[in-house]
């Protein structure tokens, strides 16, 4: 019984990580119609940049090493995302295929540059002891604290995104832009700037995912492709551009992966895609997607 509970909790904590990463992808797609194939690259670049800041501080046993790495990674990803939108994607607005191809190219360039700079050695962040040890969870026993923190971060991201989109002026502008860019522009809003803000926010979320992910799992080449694929699957299952849908998709995929690993390890990968196929067949717009 406690094994079942552990596996479910594992699934939920993994889902939390998937949600953090996929929410940025979903945000960018939902609001700007850009399939950002460089989302995984943003995860990776934030991880490595954060690590460069983290490592020297960690060597000196400074307690804020991890937080500094987190801040650096997220900030870098946000700036990187803004630059991508300003320099590359902004002037091909509305040409979805072209934007997708450009971001694929970008992700290859970024990954190879990272490989050249950091080599292939896997790296991992170590969170401060307060959130890195083990916590007693009723019904399960000792459980890695950091995985519980992941859930907290995911909930905060979800609530924050919802508040931003539904309760702030920026959110209002973003939502208006989705429905009618021209009318929004006519109202005196600088629409391209709103686009940069959204892209930057999406990239920052990928960066947050990168640091959290690299604390829970090793950070290495190939993580970009993996998290891009997961983001795609989560968003397709949950529904493009819906925060709640992304959360639902992440929970389904996270649980499927962990339960699959415990019950039929060889085919656990298949289970993820079976869910995607079923959703696409019965509800192509995703479970909570708008048609």
């Amino acid at each position: 019984m406690d094994l079942a509970a552990t596996i479910v909790l594992n699934g939920l904590t993994l889902a939390a990580l998937y949600f953090i990463v996929a929410s940025g992808f979903s945000l960018i797609f939902g609001l700007m119609r850009v399939v950002n194939m460089a989302h995984g690259a943003m995860y990776l670049v934030a991880g490595y940049v954060g690590y460069s800041v983290f490592e020297p501080l960690y060597d000196h046993d400074l307690w804020y090493a991890w937080y500094a790495g987190l801040a650096a990674g997220v900030a870098f990803a946000a700036v990187f995302g803004a630059l991508v939108q300003v320099l590359l994607l902004g002037w091909m607005q509305g040409q979805e295929l072209r934007q997708a191809l450009v971001t694929i190219g970008l992700s290859i360039v970024v990954a190879d540059q990272l490989l050249a700079m950091y080599g292939g050695t896997p790296r991992q962040f170590f969170a401060p002891d307060a959130i890195f040890g083990s916590t007693r969870v009723p019904g399960i026993g000792g459980y890695p604290t950091f995985r519980l923190v992941q859930i907290g971060v995911a909930v905060a991201v979800g609530v924050g995104l919802w508040l931003l989109l539904n309760r702030t002026k920026l959110g209002m502008m973003i939502r208006a832009g989705v429905d009618d860019r021209q009318m929004l522009g006519a109202c005196g809003v600088n629409v391209p700037l709103v686009g940069v803000a959204v892209f930057s926010l999406g990239a920052a979320l990928a960066g947050l995912g990168g640091i959290i992910g690299a604390t829970a799992q090793p950070l290495a080449m190939g993580a970009d492709g993996r998290f891009l694929l997961i983001s795609l699957v989560v968003v397709i299952v949950g529904g493009m551009g819906s925060v709640t849908g992304t959360a639902l998709g992440a929970v389904l995929i996270g649980l499927a992966e962990q339960i699959g690993q415990a019950m039929f390890p060889t085919y656990s990968v298949v289970l993820t895609f079976v869910i995607m196929v079923v959703v696409l067949a019965l509800r192509p717009q995703g479970i909570l997607g708008r048609a």
Binding site: N10, G11, L14, A216, Q217, A223, E257, Q258, Q261
Partner: peptide, 9 residues
């Protein structure tokens, strides 16, 4: 990269 359920078993 996530072996936690296997490790639990």
């Amino acid at each position: 990269t996530d072996f936690t359920s296997q490790i639990a078993q």
